[in-house]
Amino acid sequence: MSEHPESSAPRVPDAAPDEAVIVATARDIGLGVDASCLPGVVANRALLRRYADLVHGFALPDTCEPAFEYRP
């Protein structure tokens, strides 16, 4: 793989510890996460990622709009 100048910039490693990702993401929305919460949040995040993989794994046409104003 060729090197680009930007590649020397700090990057989040692919295998960043879940707890570090949670703390950093939470900081982005102004939320501090107490250490006592981290094991439970890690577990729930892992569950949600599995569900997210299912939803992202389904190809939808570009014309399929989000159902923000849903009418059954």
């Binding site: 929305i29 949040v41 729930n44 569950l47 997210a52 992202h56 939808l60 709009e65 989000p66 159902a67």
Partner: peptide, 22 residues
């Protein structure tokens, strides 16, 4: 812990879920 994990979900995942709903 469930609520915190939910608040951290990426926007792309929520939007895709709503598109799938349609």
């Amino acid at each position: 812990d469930r609520l915190i994990a939910g608040a951290l979900l990426p926007a792309a995942t929520l939007v895709q879920a709503h598109r799938f709903r349609n």
